[in-house]
Computed example of a mutant assay.
Amino acid sequence: MKFDTWSAFWAMGGYGFYVWLSFGFTLVTLLAIVWSTLATKKSLLREVKQKQQRAQRRKAAQKLENTL
């Protein structure tokens, strides 16, 4: 498909509103997926770190208990 002018490109033969709306919706959806993935990753890493710290505290407490 060849467009003679930029306005013809943006109009997309009268379907520009629907074409650009679908592109916009797709872009927003993809950005939401990326954001959600990054937020989940951050949450999981925080959870793993907390579990590791808890395990270290329990190990230190057991070691201290065994010396008494």
Rank of each mutant, 00 (worst) to 15 (best):
M1K: 13
M1H: 13
K2N: 13
F3D: 11
F3K: 08
F3C: 11
D4F: 01
T5S: 15
W6A: 03
W6Q: 07
W6G: 06
A8H: 10
A8V: 05
F9E: 05
F9P: 05
F9I: 04
W10M: 15
A11P: 00
A11M: 03
M12S: 07
M12E: 02
G14H: 09
G14D: 04
G14P: 04
G14F: 05
Y15C: 11
Y15I: 03
Y15S: 15
Y18G: 08
V19S: 07
L21H: 14
F23E: 10
F25P: 04
F25S: 14
F25K: 14
T26R: 00
L27G: 06
T29W: 03
L30P: 00
L30Y: 02
L30D: 03
L31P: 00
I33M: 02
V34L: 06
V34R: 08
W35R: 09
S36H: 13
S36A: 15
T37F: 02
T37S: 11
L38Y: 06
T40Y: 11
K41M: 07
K42P: 01
S43Q: 06
L45E: 15
R46L: 05
E47H: 04
E47T: 03
V48F: 09
V48Y: 11
V48W: 07
K49Y: 11
K49E: 13
Q50S: 13
Q50V: 10
K51W: 11
K51M: 09
Q52D: 15
Q53H: 12
R54H: 14
R54Y: 12
R54I: 08
A55M: 15
Q56W: 14
R57G: 04
R57I: 06
R57D: 10
R58K: 14
R58A: 11
R58E: 14
K59W: 08
K59Y: 08
A60G: 08
A61K: 11
A61G: 00
K63H: 10
L64N: 08
L64H: 08
E65R: 03
E65K: 05
N66V: 05
T67A: 06
L68K: 05
